[in-house]
Amino acid sequence: MTEQAEWLHTQIETLASQQAQFTDRAFWLALDKLVAEQDRRNDQLQGEVDGRTWRPDRW
């Protein structure tokens, strides 16, 4: 996880813990999960871009 993602995760977790309503807490925690998914997808896409750009046969 990048530093930025770590920071965002902490912000969301703190905000979630401050919500009195169960359904409100659920919303922010689900967003936290989605942000983790975004982070993973970002990594994978970045990896694929790097992999496809690295073409020694075209040097």
Binding site: Q4, L8, L15, Q38, N42, L45, V49, R52
Partner: peptide, 24 residues
């Protein structure tokens, strides 16, 4: 304010993914 910060960061991540997908 925290809520808005989270929203901005979430939207930024969304845009980044879209840009990467376009590049790919």
């Amino acid at each position: 304010a925290t809520g808005r910060l989270i929203q901005a960061e979430f939207e930024q991540q969304k845009d980044d993914i879209e840009a990467l997908a376009d590049t790919l």
